[in-house]
Amino acid sequence: MVVKSKRGRRRYIAFETKQKMSEDELIGCLRTHFAGAAMAMPKIIQFNGNRGIVRVNGTNVDKARTLMNNNELKTLLTSGTLLTIRERYFPTPEKRY
């Protein structure tokens, strides 16, 4: 297992799309915005058509948020854990017994 100090910390960004799109369209949108920047494209963790979560390197989180805030995407929250984002923007239905 790699030590976090060598790998770097990961940050998760919750985002919202202006209009409903497929995952392929989202990948194309991210690719066009991150192509000119000197950083890797973020990894898509979860996407439901309107809202999603991507993972970025902790050192590039500010630059990634700037690139993602455009006329197609809007960032909502940045967090160090997926649990925080999922509780706020992707609630699970309550189980009934």
Rank of each mutant, 00 (worst) to 15 (best):
N50E: 13
K4W: 02
L26Q: 13
V56Q: 06
R31N: 12
T92G: 01
L67S: 03
L30M: 12
M21T: 07
P42N: 03
R11D: 06
M39F: 01
Y12P: 03
A38W: 06
R88I: 09
L67E: 06
A38K: 12
S5N: 08
R51T: 03
L26T: 15
F34Q: 02
M21S: 03
T81F: 05
R31S: 12
H33N: 11
R7W: 14
E25W: 14
N48P: 04
N57Y: 05
T92Y: 01
I44G: 09
V2K: 11
T78V: 15
M21D: 01
I45V: 12
V54G: 08
E72Q: 07
R31Q: 15
M39I: 15
K4C: 07
T66C: 10
L76T: 04
K43P: 06
G58M: 04
P42A: 01
F34E: 01
N60W: 02
A14I: 00
L83F: 11
N57H: 08
I85P: 11
R86D: 03
I13Y: 00
L30P: 00
R86N: 12
L26A: 11
G36S: 11
R96L: 10
V2M: 08
K74R: 14
S22Y: 10
R31E: 14
R96K: 10
L83S: 13
S22F: 09
D62L: 13
Y97V: 05
G52T: 05
K18L: 13
K43V: 14
N71R: 08
R10N: 07
M21R: 05
P91V: 11
V54F: 04
G52E: 02
K43H: 12
P91S: 03
K95P: 09
L26I: 14
L30N: 04
R65C: 15
T81I: 08
K43E: 15
C29Y: 04
T81C: 04
H33S: 14
K4N: 10
R65W: 02
F34G: 01
N69R: 07
L82C: 02
K95I: 11
E87S: 14
R7P: 00
N69Y: 02
R65D: 02
Y97L: 09
A37T: 15
R11A: 08
A64V: 05
Y89G: 08
I53L: 06
N71S: 13
G49E: 06
Y89N: 11
F15Q: 01
G52Y: 03
G36H: 12
V3C: 15
T92D: 05
N70A: 03
N48K: 03
Q19F: 06
L76N: 01
D62Y: 03
K20G: 01
G52S: 06
I44Y: 10
R51N: 10
Y89M: 07
Y89E: 09
T17W: 00
A40G: 08
V56T: 14
V61P: 00
E23I: 09
T59D: 10
T59C: 03
E87L: 10
R88A: 13
P91N: 05
V3Y: 14
K95Q: 13
N57K: 06
R51K: 15
V56L: 13
T78K: 06
M1I: 13
K63N: 08
A40P: 02
R88Y: 06
A14K: 01
R9H: 13
I27L: 08
M39D: 04
S22L: 10
L30E: 05
I27Q: 12
N57G: 07
F90T: 04
M21P: 00
G58I: 09
R9M: 07
R65H: 00
L73I: 15
F34S: 00
S79A: 15
E94H: 02
T66G: 10
